[in-house]
Simulated scan of single mutants.
Amino acid sequence: MGTLSLTDYEEVKIPVPWGHISGRWHGNRTERPILAFHGWLDNLGTFDRLIPLLPDNVGVLCIDLPGHGRSSRLQPGMHYSVYDYVFIIPRVMKEYGWHKVSLMGHSLGGIISFVYAALAPHTVDMIISLDILLPIPINARGKDLDTLGRNMEKHLVEDERQEEGNLREPPAYTLPELRKVLAKGSYNSVPPKEAQHLLYRQVAKSQLYPDRFYFSRDARVKFYHHLYLQEGLAAEMARRIKRKPYLIIKGSLSPYVGRHCDEAMSILGESNPHFELHEVEGTHHVHLHAAEECAKYIVPFIRHHRPPTLNTWSLAGQEAQLSSKERRLAQEQFFARHKPSKHRSKL
């Protein structure tokens, strides 16, 4: 069996009331693909290094969320939120007539996948979550509340600017400068050498300065409405997902799969041989800068839970799924390394 080709894809435009959802359907287009969602401020290019490592028996439909990449922006006066992004999944399913969906998401995309799987578990057959499970809880000391207040004000300013038709260009940069700006904006999670995978779908050529470019995504997405889940709610959502095939890959240097996820992960993994948790050395964009290491877990997971329809194919061989014993041992070692100290605050 082979792997997907990054250049073998079909550009898609899925109509929605405010415009369209832009995407790329890689590989097999005769069967239902894996539906892939990127993270906040990113676009479908985030999967460019991972796609060529995935098995070619399934397709992968990567989309740009509204306001990101080449998808349409929401109308003036509207606000972006995680809740609304969740509704993109049933819209895509309706467009193609799917009754089931396989999900893969990084960061915001992983949160969207978790929420949708909890709301409509009967329609989900597999989830791959890249360095995320739940959103990080809001700071109880009020620091995050201050940030939310400032973001509300900034969103209104940006909304008024767009509604008034102010066509003044955002700041423009050379391509080397853009790589550095993107790396800094991601807290160096995206190395400058990998920045081109995200830039080609979210920059436009400046009309004022030759050889310079500016970010073309909707600036309002920077101030989108976050989702905050109390532990009890997150646990109940995990119970609704039950024994679904669920793969979580954590970047070793990232805080996004932390103690706040322990209860939900414990529920997802309880008596569930289809639950996997693995740690790969790297930052939040571990699937981008360490794609090969992530693929070591993603490929057998896909081949096990979305096998080819050919009767001659077998799960046996070098690419077989890790045994249940090996998987359980890896998970126990992970939880042991990340067990909270007695002296740590529970906040």
Rank of each mutant, 00 (worst) to 15 (best):
G2P: 12
E10N: 06
E10Y: 00
K13T: 07
P15T: 03
G19T: 06
H20M: 09
H20F: 10
S22N: 08
R24S: 03
E31R: 09
R32Q: 15
P33Y: 06
L35E: 08
T46H: 04
R49S: 06
L53A: 08
I63V: 13
D64Y: 00
L65V: 06
P76R: 07
H79Q: 13
D84Q: 09
R91Y: 05
V92I: 15
Y96G: 02
G97K: 13
S102R: 14
H106P: 13
I128L: 14
P137D: 02
A140F: 09
T147L: 14
R161I: 10
E163L: 12
E163Y: 04
E177G: 00
E177M: 02
G185L: 14
Y187S: 15
R201K: 08
A204S: 13
S206N: 08
F213W: 15
F215Y: 10
D218I: 03
R220V: 03
H226S: 12
Y228K: 05
G232V: 05
A235M: 13
R243V: 13
L247N: 09
G251Y: 09
V257C: 12
V257G: 11
R259K: 07
D262S: 11
M265F: 06
E270S: 10
E279S: 11
L288N: 10
E293R: 08
I298A: 03
F301D: 15
R306E: 01
L310M: 03
L315G: 15
A316D: 11
S324K: 14
F335L: 05
H338K: 06
P340R: 13
S341L: 15
L347M: 11
